[in-house]
Simulated scan of single mutants.
Amino acid sequence: MKEQKKGIILGLAAYILWGIIPLYWKLLPTVNSMDILCYRIVWSFLFMGIYILITKRGLAFMQEVKSVLRDRKKVIGIVAAAILISINWFTFIYSVSQGRVTEASLGYYMNPLVNVLLGTVILKERLNRAGIVACLLALTGVLLLTIQTGVVPYASLIMAFSFSFYGLMKKKIEISSYTGLTLETFVILPIALVYLFFFSEKGFMAYEININLLLMGAGIVTAIPLLLFAEAAKRISYIIVGFIQYINPTIMLLFAVFLFKEPYTSAQFTAFGFIWLGIAVFTYSSYLTFKKEQKILGE
């Protein structure tokens, strides 16, 4: 019980930090989205290197790296994961910088249901009746948003699907979270550095001191929630994760409406309502399944 309580606290901390991250990107209005992404990659890699040294995990890290290099499928998986998470990060940063935090929050609301969909289509997992209803409700919400705005919510869909595919890649590669994140940022690091040195309008770290410090901090705000979540996932069940993961998009949506004053009409609320209802059906179904499994184990 003590470990579970610790896991819940760590999980809450991770999702709350993810929820308030839009505030951080809003502090960088003079830096374009591609620059922020590249600095995020560079400083995340450096931060992870420092983290591995401080926690004295260098030997374990090198052993895992050797294991990855000996397995071609793992190498391909790491590269694919690096590309997917970069797409996800860029879409999120771009959405926030364009004043579309509501759309970004929608992507994270949709993510669990997209996981169910991909699990059914790719992993051939059986989709129960509640899962079908949940996915149909979410699809209805997306269609309503598309009809109301006249534009498909591409950013939301890209964020949801890129993170879900990223999760699939991570599921197939059995390595620690810190090794995974370090290798993923290392894969994209050369591209990020080439862009920053040769294609960025400003050049590498050529902003004012306060902006440069914030860009350096991008690595910290990226890595810490991921590490907290990884530790939480070891201690708590999937069903608990399912409940607390909606803290992130809920905080983002509240910021979008009340702090950033983004337009939020009754029509949008109705569309989101279908997605929330789908989430409720999916979460309740998962809870019942979890309770049933616990009862069987108890017997």
Score class of each variant (00 low, 15 high):
residue 116 V to M: 12
residue 169 M to N: 06
residue 108 Y to V: 06
residue 175 I to P: 02
residue 141 G to A: 14
residue 164 S to D: 08
residue 103 E to R: 09
residue 172 K to L: 10
residue 150 G to K: 08
residue 123 L to Q: 08
residue 136 L to S: 14
residue 154 Y to L: 13
residue 152 V to R: 10
residue 142 V to G: 04
residue 112 P to D: 09
residue 142 V to Q: 07
residue 161 F to S: 15
residue 161 F to Y: 14
residue 162 S to H: 03
residue 154 Y to T: 09
residue 110 M to D: 00
residue 155 A to F: 15
residue 145 L to V: 12
residue 115 N to A: 12
residue 175 I to S: 06
residue 116 V to Y: 02
residue 101 V to E: 07
residue 156 S to V: 03
residue 171 K to F: 05
residue 170 K to N: 09
residue 111 N to P: 08
residue 147 I to M: 12
residue 112 P to S: 14
residue 133 V to S: 05
residue 154 Y to A: 11
residue 143 L to H: 10
residue 135 C to A: 15
residue 165 F to K: 03
residue 110 M to L: 15
residue 118 L to F: 08
residue 152 V to E: 07
residue 165 F to H: 01
residue 105 S to C: 14
residue 168 L to R: 10
residue 143 L to Q: 09
residue 111 N to Q: 13
residue 170 K to P: 03
residue 155 A to S: 15
residue 165 F to Q: 00
residue 135 C to T: 14
residue 138 A to H: 13
residue 129 R to F: 07
residue 153 P to S: 13
residue 172 K to G: 05
residue 133 V to W: 12
residue 136 L to K: 02
residue 132 I to C: 07
residue 173 I to K: 07
residue 165 F to I: 13
residue 105 S to N: 14
residue 144 L to H: 12
residue 175 I to H: 10
residue 121 V to N: 06
residue 175 I to M: 14
residue 136 L to P: 02
residue 101 V to Y: 03
residue 138 A to E: 01
residue 170 K to L: 11
residue 147 I to C: 10
residue 104 A to F: 03
residue 112 P to A: 15
residue 129 R to S: 09
residue 163 F to W: 13
residue 167 G to R: 08
residue 116 V to G: 00
residue 145 L to E: 06
residue 119 G to R: 04
residue 170 K to F: 00
residue 161 F to C: 14
residue 168 L to W: 00
residue 161 F to K: 10
residue 144 L to D: 08
residue 112 P to L: 01
residue 123 L to Y: 09
residue 158 I to C: 06
residue 163 F to K: 01
residue 112 P to N: 12
residue 102 T to C: 07
residue 135 C to E: 01
residue 163 F to D: 00
residue 109 Y to P: 01
residue 112 P to V: 07
residue 122 I to V: 11
residue 160 A to V: 02
residue 137 L to D: 02
residue 150 G to C: 09
residue 154 Y to E: 03
residue 136 L to H: 03
residue 178 Y to E: 10
residue 138 A to M: 13
residue 160 A to M: 02
